[in-house]
Design a protein around this nucleic acid. Structure first.
Lengths: 334, 334
DNA sequence: CTGTTAGCGCATTCAA
DNA sequence: TTGAATGCGCTAACAG
């Protein structure tokens, strides 16, 4: 039973209307009255109820942060945590609350994720960790609920996205290897149901094309972004094309796995095989040799996603697709 | 303007009360009436407003997930993300919403974090990433708001905690090294304002005592849980005591940094110096050599914290201090 | 089995 | 400059 506006009104000897006005900074309240109200409120420890406020104002100032299948995506903490921090930081500074949502939650409760958001009157949602073949994809795309996807290039009236320029990012990584004289370059991509995989493949191909090198399907393997996947993929790759002198991985974790495998079979890095990763997660810096990689500005991705959503909510801006630039970070693995 | 209970009532030709009852599963609604209501509701795409519901029921089913200084704590994603997943998973499955809160948020808005929770009528809060010297510590400890700390051993009427049994965990790590014949064992602890550091120090000392070895202050260094810190600490440690044959680190990241340093100065692991870490984060498994470590069940910590909070909220249970057992994970660094 | 009434805490007309 | 009245969407007595 928290103290309500009524308690304050009574204690200050005014009507609740006046208290409301005083608290919302209206200027049609006598200076002395206002001061008395604020003083009484502080004494009583009054805090206006956002719940009641939301109901009457018909807006909750609350947005969802959807992590698709949160539990299953725990391995992606290297990427997701920073994005979350960026989203929350910007949203909080603009006075919005952020509610954690996971598609697993919705499934547990047998309601669609849109229903979940609707019940809570969330004003929008930021979506991350979602695959292109996720059953919830349709919902996101067709919903009237304003949303911004992270690495989820869906564009509609209510749906924008933020992602790194993966085509160019992959090109950067590849050009670096090419400039070092490598010609037989393996590519360990992420799973094909990730939007970023499509783009990184494009970048890989483009870089080869520009260099006048024919793409060899034997040099391309799809994996799962994780360490074990990278390890297995590298083994496969080397069995198919023992002559490769460099490998480009679509994630740092896979690169790490790859390096582990290379190490085990006695290949030196970068002398025998040069390695480039993707993401620039903290681990990339710690490995031996330290990993050359293409950086993603994860925190900023979150911030921009929040900005785009707020633009839609507050200024009725059209959602768009925002691409952040990639940058090559050269370390010892190349 | 979502569709309200009134719209449904009108369309179904009943009163809003009946709709309310139908939706809340009361049995005093005629089967045909109920069916009609549900059908109409589905057609209209009606979703009950949690906001209105919260107001009238005087409970929001919403709890806060406080990450102390979210942004500054981004380096701790190896630990925090899994805990969050555990918290959210359990809370969501019990029908609770979870709102992200950070002390930075509160500071930005110039309200205390308790005020933040009060305004939103959060029913409780789970606190993580907080240091013992955090200015918000007092607030947590004295608040009437039910809370559960992760690695924050404060116990009061409204405040419980969940943490790993760090005393025993450290003992396990040390005993492992002792059993391998090591006698001069360095200890790189976390910063002293982390509750876990105190306990791990105890465990370290206890293990030595039991083994009949005098503790040598030269063998103990405090650092910051992170890679760079571990690296610097190791350098310091070796300069003070070049004869150590093993080092116990209070985090895997510091152990990683330590291994990097040892590697650089030509020490072999584990032949010259054996290394044990703490946490069992994913990276520990990927390093070369793979890191022997003391595991923390991060996801479970989150789940138990959620359970404890729910116990306080729903069954008026006393908060307590729950210690999870540690386990030694032996790999190649020892 | 169903409807009428009241009220949750607040913001906002409209009068005074 | 202030207050009384109304309603946001919903639940819960209380009647019928």
């Amino acid at each position: 039973m928290p103290v309500t506006i009524r308690d304050v009104a009574r204690a200050a000897g005014v009507s609740i209307t006046t208290v409301s006005r005083a608290f919302n900074g209206y200027d049609d309240v006598g200076p002395d009255t206002r001061k008395r109200i604020l003083k009484v409120a502080k004494e009583l420890n009054y805090r206006p109820s956002h719940v009641a406020r939301s109901l009457v104002l018909q807006q909750t100032q609350n947005v969802g942060l959807l992590i698709s299948d949160f539990n299953a995506n725990r391995g992606a903490h290297h990427f997701l945590f920073d994005v979350m921090a960026g989203v929350h930081d910007r949203l909080a500074s603009l006075g919005y609350d952020v509610t954690l949502v996971s598609t697993t939650t919705a499934r547990q409760r047998l309601v669609s994720y849109i229903d979940f958001c609707t019940e809570r009157r969330l004003e929008g949602v930021i979506v991350m960790g979602m695959r292109l073949d996720d059953p919830y994809m349709q919902e996101v795309a067709e919903a009237k609920l304003p949303s911004v996807g992270i690495d989820l290039p869906i564009l509609s009236r209510y749906c924008g996205y933020v992602m790194t320029d993966n085509v160019n990012g992959a090109k950067l990584g590849m050009q670096h290897l090419l400039s070092k004289g490598h010609r037989r370059i393996g590519f360990v991509n992420g799973h094909q149901k990730a939007a970023v995989s499509v783009d990184r493949m494009r970048g890989y191909q483009l870089a080869l094309e520009t260099a006048g090198i024919d793409s060899d399907p034997d040099l391309i393997v799809h994996s799962n972004f994780l360490v074990e996947g990278g390890e297995a993929a590298t083994e496969l790759l080397l069995s198919r094309a023992p002559d490769i002198t460099a490998i480009f991985y679509a994630s740092d974790l896979m690169a790490l796995g790859g390096m582990r495998y290379l190490h085990r079979v006695g290949k030196r890095i970068p002398e025998d095989v040069a390695v480039v990763g993707y993401d620039n997660v903290d681990v990339a810096e710690w490995s031996t040799p330290a990993l050359t990689t293409v950086s993603q500005r994860r925190f900023e991705m979150g911030v921009y996603a929040a900005d785009m959503l707020i633009g839609m909510l507050q200024r009725d801006e059209e959602p768009g697709g925002r691409l952040l630039p990639s940058e090559l970070v050269v370390r010892q693995s190349t």
